[in-house]
Each structure stands twice: as structure tokens, then as C-alpha cells.
């Protein structure tokens, strides 16, 4: 008799107190509300902190002048803003087209074939490479042999991070294009390349643009890959070669300046660091929100 009851209670269908089950349910659903609240609260906390502390640094000098030397107050991060734009642009020029055409291969030609599956697996691995390792790669590849830091090596590190992001998102978007479109283009007698670029890519352009913009923005805020490549510089970026050129020497950039200034004991430098943080968060979050709103259509076929 007792044995049967014990067996019954172990059985998955054993009757249990409804009140207890409801209580457990309430506790779990409440805690998932709390969890979401924590996530949203942290997001808000970070944004508010950066805005409140950074807005004071924004003035004309911040956007037009070089960083202050030593103890002098004033100055700005203008050279770093230019540097970040140039480095990111350099990365986009390399990373985006490679990722875009790579994705075309995966979705239009390779499909489920062995080569495409292999490339997809490698893309996923590269997607998971820590950004500091990407920086180390660019250092060992370009900085060590040439004996000097450069903005170009930073672009290479960022392109390495951007490439798999672009490939994956572009492939996902291209896969959403209905096959009928490809078939009708080919039935019209269009060669494969025209069917792809003129019809498939055109149909998916909203998603592709979103993917490209988000990939660029994602690397624009990176710091770790720049530590050993672009380093930082108190001067303007000038020309290509030569000690303060894009290929020739350390290049000022926002994220490394924020990092360096945040470690300084001087309040005005820390203020500049917050100003730089605000600029980055406005750019990154702003572009994220705007592209999502503008091109949301690309996600729903």
C-alpha cells in the first residue's frame, strides 16, 4: 500500500497541489518581469550616465580642436573623430564588398554544397574571434614587419571583424528572397549574374543596406583591435605615407582616446572621455534605431 503511493508520487502525472503550482508559476513569471526590468534599467542607466556626463564636454572646441597637451584645459577630439571615420571607412571598403559577394556565393551558388558548408563554418568561427585577437593578428601581420603602427593596420583588423558579420547577415537576407524571382529572371533569358545582381539583390536591398550599416556601426565602436594597431596620436591625420599618414604612423581615434583619457587623473581629460563616449553612443545607437525603423520592411517578406 505504502509502496504504491511512493511510486505514484514519483510518476510524472502524479497529482500535485494546484495552489503550489500556481504559486511557482507566479514566482517565475514575476521574476521574468524583474529580469526584463533589470535589462531595460541597465540600458537606460548607461545611456543616461553617458548623456549627463558627456553633454558638458560638447562645445565647438570638442569638434574642431586637437586634444590638450599636459595640464591645459580645453581642446577637443577632432583629430580622433576624423581618425575613427577614416579607419572605419577603410575597413568598410575592404570588408563590405568581400562579405557581400561571399554571401552571394553562399546563397546563390554554394547553397548546401560541401564548399559552402565549410565556408559557413569558418565564417562562424571567425565571427567568434575575440576582437583583441583580431588586433593581435593585424599587429603581427602588418605592424611587426613594417616596424610602425598605422591606421591602415587598424582598418585591416576591423575588416576582419566586419567580414563574417556582413557575410552572415547578407546571406540570411538573400535567402529570404523567394525562388520564384530567380526563376522568372532566368526564364526571361537573363544570365545568372544579371538575375542575381539585377533581381535578387535588388529585391533584398533594404535588408542588405541594413546589414551593411549595422556591420559598419558595430566595428566603429571597437577599441581592443585598435590598441596594437592604430595606437593613438595627438596630431591630425595627414596624407597617406609619412609619420602621421594613414599607412605611415599611429592614427588618432575616438575609442583609444576615451580609454587613455579615462585613466588620467585630470578631470578635464576625463570630461573629454565622456564627451567621446557620448558621441559614440549617439552614433551607434542612433544609427541602429534609425536603420531599424527605416528598413524594417527588409526583414518581413
Amino acid at each position: 500500500m505504502t509502496a504504491t503511493t511512493t511510486d505514484l508520487s514519483r510518476c510524472p502525472m502524479a497529482p500535485r497541489s494546484v495552489r503550489r503550482r500556481r504559486l511557482v508559476n507566479t514566482v517565475i513569471t514575476t521574476s521574468s518581469w524583474i529580469a526584463a526590468a533589470i535589462g531595460i534599467f541597465v540600458m537606460g542607466w548607461i545611456v543616461v550616465t553617458v548623456v549627463v556626463r558627456g553633454i558638458g564636454a560638447w562645445n565647438v572646441a570638442f569638434f574642431t580642436q586637437l586634444p590638450p597637451t599636459g595640464n591645459d584645459p580645453g581642446g577637443g577630439l577632432a583629430n580622433a573623430i576624423v581618425g575613427t571615420l577614416v579607419i572605419t571607412f577603410g575597413a568598410a571598403v575592404v570588408g563590405l564588398p568581400l562579405g557581400f559577394f561571399g554571401a552571394i556565393y553562399l546563397s546563390e551558388f554554394g547553397r548546401a554544397g560541401r564548399v559552402a558548408t565549410g565556408i559557413r563554418a569558418v565564417t562562424n568561427i571567425v565571427l567568434g574571434v575575440p576582437s583583441i585577437v583580431a588586433g593581435m593578428f593585424a599587429y603581427a601581420l602588418l605592424v611587426l614587419p613594417s616596424h610602425h603602427y598605422s591606421g591602415f593596420s587598424a582598418s585591416v583588423a576591423l575588416a576582419f571583424i566586419m567580414l563574417p558579420v556582413m557575410t552572415r547577415t547578407a546571406e540570411d537576407v538573400l535567402n529570404l528572397v523567394p525562388n520564384e524571382l530567380r526563376e522568372s529572371a532566368l526564364a526571361m533569358g537573363a544570365p545568372r549574374w544579371r538575375a542575381t545582381l539585377g533581381v535578387v539583390v535588388k529585391a533584398a536591398r533594404a535588408g542588405l543596406i541594413t546589414g551593411a550599416i549595422l556591420a559598419v556601426v558595430r566595428v566603429a565602436g571597437e577599441t581592443a583591435p585598435l590598441l596594437f594597431t592604430a595606437l593613438s596620436s595627438p596630431y591630425w591625420l595627414s596624407g597617406f605615407f609619412g609619420p602621421s599618414g594613414y599607412f605611415g604612423g599611429p592614427t588618432a581615434n575616438l575609442t583609444k582616446d576615451i580609454y587613455d583619457f579615462s585613466q588620467q587623473p585630470y578631470p578635464h581629460l576625463i570630461q573629454l572621455a565622456w564627451g567621446g563616449s557620448l558621441l559614440i553612443i549617439v552614433a551607434v545607437l542612433g544609427v541602429n534605431v534609425v536603420t531599424r525603423l527605416l528598413f524594417q520592411r527588409g526583414k518581413e517578406w
Binding site: A36, I40, I46, G221, I258
Partner: peptide, 15 residues
Amino acid sequence: IEMLAAVPSIIFGMW
């Protein structure tokens, strides 16, 4: 919450 993923590492560091 996805936006939290877009916040760069350096901003998390400053905060």
C-alpha cells in the same frame, strides 16, 4: 535589450 548588445565595450568600461 538588443540595443544593449550594440553598446560598445568601451562604454561599458566607462560606466
